[in-house]
Design a protein around this nucleic acid. Sequence first.
RNA 1: GACUGCGUAGCUCAACCGGAUAGAGCGUCGGGCUUCGAACCCGAAGGUUGGGGGUUCGAACCCCUCCGCGGUCGCCA
Length: 585
Amino acid sequence: MNIFGLFERRVGDALQRLAEAGRIPAGLDTSRVLVEPPREAAHGDLSTNAAMVLGKPAGLAPRALAQLLVEELQADLRLTAVSVAGPGFINMALAPQVLHDVLRAALADLDGFGRSSAGAGRPVNVEYVSANPTGPMHVGHGRGAVFGDALANLLAVAGWQVTREYYVNDAGAQVDVLARSAFLRYREALGEPIGAIPAGLYPGDYLKGVGASLAAAHGSALRDRPEAEWLPVVRDAAIAAMMDLIRDDLASLGIRHAVFFSERTLAEGPNDRIAATIADLRGRDLVYEGRLAPPKGQAIEDWEDREQTLFRATAFGDDVDRPLLKSDGSYTYFASDIAYHRDKVARGFDRMIDVWGADHGGYVKRMQAAVRAVSEGRAELDVKLCQLVRLFRAGEPVRMSKRSGDFVTLREVVDEVGRDPVRFMMLFRKNDAPLDFDLAKVLEQSKDNPVFYVQYAHARIASVFRQAGETLGAAPTVEELRAAGLGPLTDEAELDLLRRVAQYPRLVEAAASAHEPHRIAFFLYDVAAAFHALWNKGKDLPQLRFVKHDDRDSTLARLALIGAVAGVLRSGLSILGVSAPDEMR
RNA sequence: GACUGCGUAGCUCAACCGGAUAGAGCGUCGGGCUUCGAACCCGAAGGUUGGGGGUUCGAACCCCUCCGCGGUCGCCA
């Protein structure tokens, strides 16, 4: 139940009536008309910019148009005050009954309250993580993983039919390097001394297990064969093992993809989908043979001016056309990626979101160009770039770890601090801003730690309900809370909390349409702060305490309020993939 | 050099995708604990939103320009 959407339609009706009465022109574009919460609570519960947006096209001064709208809206019994303010804002105060209805709606369906139908069941594909299957995930991968997963949750709550997808880069030179590294471990497992791992191969211990299982499965049969024979065998085993490792890492964060799409299958077998993609684009004159100017800036030593196969990316806003074939005739990564996104379009996705590391930023334009080309403009790709994560411990930077080469693994961090702090803190920052993650701070049980502060609000509410159970004999049921009279909720701190509850459905819609799950995290922080403030107020003013022995009516009203708050916290935390504990002792 | 992201209070960051007097936390300063969970609380000070120009009723947000920081820069992934 989104009261802002509700009154947006109400304002639309009022405009319609004014147009029918000939007082404003018909057919005005109302797409920019919004009903939002005013910044200042003193301005009321709702505010609309309608008069300012439509003043010019209607040929009226904004305040004059506002006055017309006020006359229309004043008849609405749900509004106790409607007034023009500032340059032409229309502020509206809701009858208490309306906010009470919102509260009851939240209580009636604690999990469904924030749900919206904005997506209307349309399919959207969210591709995230897509780390190369060459080793364990590091902390930077973890941010993209958590972000993508929360975004997928958010879109699902907003009514989209979400497919969570992982693109497995199991083709190309890197997995061959992986195979050679694993082969070395295989020889080691057979008892050969291998010495130091040569430069250019992966040194991590995590390949020892692959070597051992190859030795167990093949004995020494692979050892003396030429590379061309053992490499595919070793490579497949190593990739499978690495994907198991990565799936475990992801599972430790509660992340599970529905689709793992293998890059290699694109060009395998009788139907080479990369060739088909290039042929399709060539048929529409979007692929041609031509030459590129050498890139500006730093000189490239072995630059070879040659004719190559190019995608006409410049026709879709990219800066230069992009090569599809390497000099040895094999496909570029970009060629595979075009075919991959074309496959997504063919599977029915005209909305796609890719979550990448910020170091891939230079790739965005060409990928969006490619999606427009292969879908003939029907599909749209949004790319979300996640910035770096810097690890700290009590303010001191954490550098390279001892184990597993040169990075701190995601698993080490999750094992140390737990899933909830990792997920929450990764989302408590805009995706395109760098993130400092402090391993010590996220475990503090204090107001300085947002994870704790939000979870504690939920636990505290559960504690009040336990307390109420003792005082009242039994904790009230949801039915009792829904039936409670809400008149006793009159204190400003209570009304503030109530208004925030009412804003939740609108916030979910906005966060989903902006593809910005961090808004949920910040909102929950604000809700928790408002709840803690009310709690603290009750310490000074005993009449504001939640549970009152001698006043069952106001006790029930307040329990209804904080019961709904707990529901919002649970709902929001579940979007973030963070637990909502009942106790934190 | 090109492209791209960022620049907001002393510090770390928000600001609902153009709205009203730009908000939080930390830090600073001044008060407060015989507790429904002090796992703190209340209050105050603190801003030319990097500089300049433009668009409009209205700009942290859009456009231009300059400054600073990061990322990327033929076929790597």
